[in-house]
Design a protein around this nucleic acid. Structure first.
Lengths: 218, 218
DNA sequence: CTTGCGCCGTACCGTACGGTACGGTACCGT
DNA sequence: ACGGTACCGTACCGTACGGTACGGCGCAAG
């Protein structure tokens, strides 16, 4: 809301127009966006502070001033990504009435979020990284949040162990598609694949949910 | 079988005693074992040809003579790992009578193979690597083989789409455990976790399999 | 106008890596 | 006994990276 009153001359926002940000926030956002972009373009190995600075047309000094070191930059980029994709999980949930519809929509959203190019790049480094502590951060900021949302859904379904069911459901819809994508397979019609993945997961899970229903009123 | 007759003086096998190998094969095996070990110890980023050479007490020249370059070494190590873990998938399958028992045993074996330390290290680099072509190789040499075995099992169950069911099942038993492990979570009682994971996957899947049975004889 | 701050661009330093070259040595086949 | 081959150890080269330093510029505050 409060656009800093002392700086009316909004700095050229560069690539993404973000209203109501202090110039400092705008710069930070720009740097983090380019961090994700470079990560996506160059991969984990080739990712370098130099490349980020060049891509963002900033100086390395600025990078280090804002984020301390490479670890700090990667952490900030991960957290930013988490904030950006979080709302995606809730898209279209209001218009889903059936429990099954809600699960289907949740599954769709989850997979679409997972397979965003920048999200994939982040998953790659979170998986492979062993020196910047990105793995635990990813687990906390991204995985855990998603599980919590799905868990709430299964809790409303009256499952004995909603947490476990949520994890199984997410595993089902990922199936081996996730692994294939992470391993670099180029597949066409990703949306269709996602749809089929979620559909079949629900086909397999439906009888189980029915048994829950039957046992519940009894 | 045929131990090369011209070289009776078996070279000091170093770390692993492997009978009936030509010295060249023994050296290759030693180098690849140390490759996996260094990969496991140092991670993907810090992994270096120097470290492998030092660990194996070999010279870099030898490494390059045998494997060409870093990519070749990593490829060879991956293929070797694939060969080593392949038989693990079939452990105890003979004594499993029920279809469900077979699925359970298969699931156990699969997860145990996945979570071997060296296998984890390989998965990490296969996921993150974008320059050595390890992803597709991993998919072909490891993932694809495992899926095929499980697929055969579901085919025997009379599923409409055994391939898809196999992938869903593997996804279920991995659940979020796989992701947590890959992200560096330290968890105790891995065996217990695996057991619970497989158990619950079968609980969820059992009603679905029953519907298949019911539809089948009718 | 002066001061200070944040930024840019570039240069710089130390280190580490991939890959090659070379001297020296053990062993094998002839 | 001789030549070839594979090996070790080490040194070397070019490159690239993380991180720092410095000069110069724009801009806002006093």
């Amino acid at each position: 809301m409060a656009a800093s009153p002392t700086t009316p001359s909004e700095r050229a926002a560069g690539d993404l127009a973000r209203p109501s940000e202090t110039p400092d926030e705008a710069l930070r956002a720009r740097l983090l966006d380019h961090t994700l972009r470079v990560l996506l373009r160059d991969g984990y190995r080739r990712f370098s502070m130099n490349a980020v600075a060049t891509s963002a047309r900033a100086s390395k000094e600025t990078l280090y001033r804002h984020f301390g070191d490479k670890t700090g930059l990667l952490h900030a980029a991960l957290v930013r990504m988490a904030v950006l994709i979080d709302p995606l999980l809730h898209v279209g949930l209001d218009s889903a009435t059936t429990r099954e519809d809600r699960l289907r929509q949740l599954g769709r959203n989850y997979l679409h979020g997972c397979y965003l190019p920048e999200a994939l790049a982040l998953q790659r480094i979170a998986y492979a990284d062993g020196e910047h502590g990105l793995g635990p951060l990813f687990a906390e900021e991204i995985t855990e949040r998603a599980i919590a949302v799905v868990e709430a859904e299964f809790e409303a379904l009256g499952c004995d162990d909603p947490r476990r069911d949520a994890e199984v459901y997410l595993g089902m819809i990922q199936g081996k598609l996730h692994e294939r994508i992470m391993l670099g397979a180029e597949l066409d019609d990703l949306d269709g694949q996602i749809e089929r993945q979620v559909d079949h997961a629900l086909v397999v899970m439906a009888p189980y949910l029915t048994t829950l229903d039957e046992r519940r009123p009894g």
